[in-house]
Amino acid sequence: MKLTDEERNILIAIVIAAAAGLIINIFFSYNNKIQATESVSAPMLININTASAEELDRLPGVGKVTAERIVKLRETDGLFTSADDLKKIKGMTMKKIEKMRKYITTEAAK
């Protein structure tokens, strides 16, 4: 395998970079610098157990009044276990719930 000067220099640079990278990883807590990034496929979800009325307002089919009703129901009846619990809200239909289902989660507040 006969390498040109350019190819040889590139291979040397790659080896040096690998060595330097290994040192940085071991001695400089490199892992901590890499923040968890948003997965390319996962959309943001609104937690109906913790979201404010303003955040709930962003859901399709939910206006200011419905958002406030959701917050009030949460305060009086406790946390929602699933999106279907929203049926109890005045003005909420199954069609609206189906439309917003992919945008919501019901993880309990910590």
Partner: peptide, 27 residues
């Protein structure tokens, strides 16, 4: 860019190898 290609090549097999090149690229 060259180190980025190396990162792609090795990082596709192993995240740890990707981070080795990633660290040099970061600097």
């Amino acid at each position: 860019s060259i180190l980025g290609f190396a990162m792609w090549l090795f990082g596709s097999w192993s995240a740890a190898l990707g981070k080795i090149f990633g660290a040099s690229i970061w600097v």
